[in-house]
Design a protein around this nucleic acid. Structure first.
Lengths: 237, 237
DNA sequence: TTGCACAACATGTATATACAAGTTATAATA
DNA sequence: TATTATAACTTGTATATACATGTTGTGCAA
């Protein structure tokens, strides 16, 4: 339907598959205009997305340089689910659902999920196994007024897939915070800590399209298995 | 000069200073068109920047919702220099230049900075003190063919200010990687580790406007003083 | 041969227009 | 009264045009 998004995805695929070989240069905007039979502005919207996401660098007067994206990065950047992440990793992964329950929001959750005292929320605790080692502990909390039903099957498979495709929720943006803390007893119990005395915690607050808060997550990683990769652009002047 | 950037900065200031009070809603695009006396597309470019950087969320049919930005975050996100960061912190900070020298690139640096064997690069080692404690160790390496001269004064003040304003370099984007490792002897020597057995490392490769690589940096943080805050949007469908 | 001017081409900014599509309040209708 | 249509808003997509500005190679002139 949306032309600029279709073109964006097509160009992403082509850059990933080395379609332009070692040229390291995209065709000019005018060429692409002819190729896709759209206006130049539409091409520019697609190229802006490519630049935002680190696929290309636009150089004035010259053209768009293809940046060689590291394909085997561990992309915690953006909002990526473990399922999506696991497909990028070439290692065997497994998810264990430790808990799936409805609980009353305590004070911390009331604040984090912005719900009223006594309101019930979904609590999901999952252990992530990579190459046979339990190295990630995910604790998710969902606003029940937005996610009325949640099954163990969905938790084992992919909650995001369930939310987006079955419930038609439009997950839009998140605030993330990464810190390093001491492991709790729960961490020691559910993870193969292997003597490590620290744990990396990614706390995320996730919002829908219409700015409603619906999820709070703590993703707890064993430090030696943790890696965060980011592409950042300098602030506009 | 550039209208959409001027409008962007004006709107950022106004949202930060609660110009619209508790309304939590930006004026409509048409209102802003009249207010700034520009076309709607120009307004939309400014608003797209605000949305990208997490200041607003655009909701179709409704308008632009102002997201309350945490003003006291520790924003390692984006490409932010310690100088810029220190002004955000309300704590007293100090920079100690431990080393400023020209060295021959070893194998690792040849790879990271993409220089020839035997080429000389700038090496800068700086300790960052926050509230009297040495908690960050920054090791910077610059391509000498791009940065011919570097002074101790510039290192104590702000290298980025020097590079951007004096050398007119256009710093554009970076790839960052965050990991947790064991401290080295150098870390123990130059930092107040305070018994911590881990260190958080942010490795950055920084590029200019025209895609030339010019800097490799390792920013080494004491784990209890480390915090990374990020705003992320879900991938476009 | 060297250097300079210029044409050709690249991206960047700004505007105007048209229509699609989602939201909301109002007014007409059952 | 309750429901439904509608009008008047909102943002989203797509196009066309004009000119500014940076890059590169060609060819003329010294």
């Amino acid at each position: 339907m949306k032309k600029y998004l279709a073109i964006y995805h097509d160009l992403v695929d082509k850059t990933k598959n080395n379609y332009w070989g070692e040229a390291e240069m995209l065709p000019s905007e005018n060429s692409l205009t002819l190729e896709y039979d759209v206006s130049r502005e539409t091409i520019r919207k697609a190229l802006d997305l490519l630049a935002q996401n680190g696929y290309i660098q636009k150089v004035r007067g010259k053209g768009s340089v293809i940046l060689n994206v590291n394909k085997f990065d561990f992309p915690v950047s953006g909002i990526v689910s473990f399922k999506e992440l696991a497909t990028n990793l070439k290692m065997p992964t497994r998810t264990i659902v430790n808990e799936l329950s409805l609980i009353e929001a305590d004070e911390k959750l009331q604040y984090k999920l912005d719900v009223e005292p006594g309101e019930t929320v979904w609590k999901v605790v999952r252990t992530r196994e990579i190459s046979g080692e339990k190295v990630i502990l995910d604790k998710d909390y969902f606003n029940k007024s937005i996610v009325p039903v949640l099954t163990k099957k969905a938790c084992e498979d992919s909650i995001y897939e369930y939310l987006e495709n079955k419930l038609n929720l439009k997950i839009s943006y998140a605030r993330k915070e990464i810190t390093v803390e001491e492991p709790t007893n729960e961490d020691r119990e559910l993870l193969d800590l292997d003597g490590h005395s620290n744990i990396v915690i990614i706390k995320s607050v996730v919002y829908l399209d219409d700015t409603t808060l619906f999820q709070y997550t703590e993703s707890r990683h064993r430090p030696d298995k943790f890696q965060f990769v980011d592409f950042a652009r300098r602030t506009q002047n």
